[in-house]
Nucleic acid binder design. Structure first.
Lengths: 327, 327
DNA sequence: TTGAAAGCGCTAACAC
DNA sequence: GTGTTAGCGCTTTCAA
């Protein structure tokens, strides 16, 4: 391994000069700078980022803590974050918490220990503890859900999206829409439930809700349970695309045709939604943009710009009516 | 920030003893160890991983360089890698190259500079240069595609999968299957093309192939082009699920029904494949397992176990016949 | 403008 | 079994 001293010797200057030129800091004599660059080049010198990080007491990596990269929503968020990071010289550490409080806590510790420059977090719930990060001076921005602490947050207008979707179902003439949503203590799950209930209440129909884990098996089980119950729904508002995968599978198994036998709207405009026949009506949220925006907020904190008080932003949720919600 | 010296002072021992107990290295007197732990706990001590990394001259992070985390295949690979990493005390740095040679090279440099413990790479093509990593003693394992260098590699039997899928199409009575695949210089694209051609040649029909970028727009364009051409195909073998999204969209736009008007098999068992009506026949590959296996190979290198020569492994590609390929 | 030198916080010889 | 101490490779005062 060739180190800074080797370059200095080859260029016949001090290590300080090498450091300065390579970081194009203060003014270095152009002639010397040229010698340094040539020496570095010919020796194949690569600065050791670990040493630099230690000395500078900061790194150029962000940690991204989400529940599951296989959830297409978070996949897009991650891509948005990564693009923002890369174009500003940062790399991103990917952490899947799997909605597991303990694993999430461990990742937060790792992030603190690694002295990441910043952290973007989709917290398990409001009880997620980021105090250690804060104490270490590591800025954190929250996405998708919110966190107890006073932090920059960017979310989708989940409740509103759910309300509009359910109202739409009702307006189309479906009489008994059910809400299939995530765990009651997951903020998005509850917000979408609340929005849906708002519409249902206004309409004077029953609240048919199932809270299940945010995956396709959860969706399948909820759909089966609802369809076998006495209070059988005739339409579904499904709180995300993974749940919908299970719901649609179960409907298909029962030969129930969406858009005629039952109505359906799901949250998240998955790429396959318009491919199904009938095409699935969705509430679309801007996942990639959410990641990008979180990156921007983080950059603001990193550069010290931005307001003192935490920013709380909402991205729109847009109903896209296709066929599955029509009668 | 509380550091190791503070803990040592509080426990009235030397920093060496603190280090030893916290790394449960050599034997430390249980009583002292207890004092150290108590002190560390009460001071809220968190070891500085950066300092440790510098001193140990190795880190506990892996870099994962793929083309695009939004490609569901790589999403699953990433999850497999992350799980393997986490359960062995490593974190993973996520790098999207977007099939861009230059961006890939930059990420390899970052990985080298950060002194990652190891790297898992889906290379742009065989010309990807990992010599700097090798020189730095960083083990790299290659996934999905291969790399010029002599490296551990884990791939899917792409060619065989493609051949079987195309043979199946032919056996079902489709007369003119076309192959829609990725860029000619992407190894998987070429392997799947080659496999498909093998079947087509044996059957004595024309080779109808389109090389396009590995995304849904590429698939859409290729399908449109083929359907408008003089040599109109009556079936499609599509080399991955992102391409298939575009192909299926185009078919739908033209009101062409899969499984009756045209036959179709796609590579990758996307979660939505069985939801379409008719359900899509697929060649399934084990993406999650590929990531996990890559992790295992990397761990072997890291621990020095494993054979001296590079391992070259293939995971099976399995045809799952559903409805889209039937007449 | 340049160089000497003091650390960043930790681990691992080495000595006791 | 425990402590002292010399670095890991770099950046950054501080002097010159």
């Amino acid at each position: 391994m060739v180190k800074i001293g080797d370059v200095a010797a080859a260029a016949d200057v001090s290590v300080a000069t090498v450091s300065r030129t390579l970081n194009n800091n203060s003014t270095v004599d152009p002639a010397l700078a040229e010698r340094v660059r040539a020496a570095a080049e010919s020796l194949g010198y690569r600065p050791n980022a670990v040493a630099r990080n230690l000395r500078r007491r900061r790194t150029s990596v962000w940690a991204l803590v989400i529940t599951d990269i296989e959830n297409p929503f978070y996949t897009a968020v991650a891509r948005g974050v990564e693009d923002a990071a890369r174009s500003n010289g940062y790399s991103v550490l990917l952490c899947n918490s799997d909605e597991d409080q303990e694993r999430e806590a461990r990742y937060l510790q790792v992030a603190a220990g690694e002295h990441v420059a910043g952290l973007i977090l989709a917290p398990r719930n409001a009880s997620t503890d980021v105090s250690e990060l804060r104490a270490a001076g590591i800025p954190v921005v929250v996405v998708d859900r919110s966190c107890g602490a006073e932090l920059d947050t960017v979310r989708t207008k989940s409740s509103e999206g759910a309300r509009i979707a359910t109202e739409h179902l009702l307006a189309e003439g479906w009489r008994r829409p059910a809400c299939i949503t995530g765990p009651a203590d997951a903020e998005t799950a509850e917000a979408r439930h609340a929005g849906s209930v708002l519409a249902v209440d206004a309409h004077g129909t029953d609240d048919l809700t199932r809270h299940v884990s945010y995956d396709s098996e959860g969706g399948r089980a909820a759909a089966a349970d609802l369809l076998d119950s006495d209070a059988r729904p005739d339409a579904f508002f499904v709180a995300n695309s993974m749940l919908a995968l299970g719901v649609l599978g179960e409907l298909r198994r029962r030969a129930l045709r969406v858009g005629s036998d039952v109505g359906l709207v799901m949250f998240d405009d998955a790429p396959w939604a318009r491919l199904l026949d009938p095409a699935i009506s969705v509430v679309s949220q801007s996942a990639y943009e959410m990641g990008g925006r979180a990156g921007e907020l983080l950059l603001d904190r990193l550069s010290g710009s931005g307001p003192a008080e935490p920013r709380n932003e909402y991205l729109p949720a847009t109903l896209i009516v296709r066929e599955s919600s029509r009668r």
